[in-house]
Computed example of a mutant assay.
Amino acid sequence: MSDARLWLERIRELPIPDGIRIMNVCGGHERSISMAGLRTALPPAIRLIPGPGCPVCICPEEDIYQAIRLGLEGEAVVATFGDMLRVPVNLGRQAVRTLEQAKAAGADIRPIASPIEARIIAEKAAGKPVVLFAVGFETTMAPVAALMAEGLPDNLYILCSGRLTWPAVKLLLDSDECVLDALVAPGHVATVMGPEEWAFVADDYRLPVAIAGFTPASLLRAIHSTIVQWLEETPRLDNCYPEAVKPGGNPKAREFLDRSFDVAAGNWRGIGPIAASAYALKPGFAAHDARLHFPDYDAGDRRHAGEMPAGCDCARVVLGRIQPDECRIYGKPCSPRSPVGPCMVSDEGACRIWWAAGVRKDSAAA
Rank of each mutant, 00 (worst) to 15 (best):
G82I: 01
L147A: 00
P333D: 09
A199R: 13
F214L: 12
A290L: 05
M141I: 00
V228M: 13
I211F: 15
G270L: 09
G19Q: 10
G127L: 01
G358S: 01
R303E: 11
C314S: 10
Y279M: 01
V245Q: 04
A113E: 15
V25Q: 10
D238P: 13
P216H: 12
S277R: 04
G270V: 04
G306R: 00
V179K: 13
G341N: 02
D258K: 02
R291F: 13
P339W: 07
C178A: 08
R47V: 15
I121P: 11
Q94T: 13
E61D: 03
G358N: 00
F137N: 01
R236I: 07
I64T: 10
S225M: 14
A265W: 15
A118R: 00
N250E: 10
Y330Q: 06
E233H: 12
A142F: 00
D63Y: 07
I274C: 10
G320P: 10
A95K: 01
A310T: 07
R303T: 14
L42T: 08
A182K: 07
P60R: 02
V56G: 05
S363I: 07
H288C: 04
Q101I: 09
P55E: 08
A126Y: 14
R5P: 15
M308I: 05
F294G: 05
E9S: 08
E197G: 12
A305W: 06
I11P: 03
A212V: 12
G27N: 05
A305S: 06
K282D: 07
C334Y: 10
C59I: 04
L292Y: 13
D204P: 15
Q66A: 02
T191V: 07
C327E: 12
D3C: 08
R236N: 09
R47W: 15
L231K: 05
I11L: 09
C327R: 07
R93G: 11
D289H: 08
L70F: 02
L156T: 02
R352N: 09
E75K: 07
K282W: 03
W198Q: 08
A222W: 14
K332T: 12
A104R: 02
F137M: 00
P115G: 00
R352M: 08
P167N: 02
I227C: 07
L180P: 11
P339Q: 06
P324K: 04
R321T: 11
A142R: 00
V184E: 14
G92M: 09
H29P: 09
G311F: 04
R321Q: 09
A276H: 13
L281F: 07
D63S: 08
V78H: 03
P55C: 06
P60H: 12
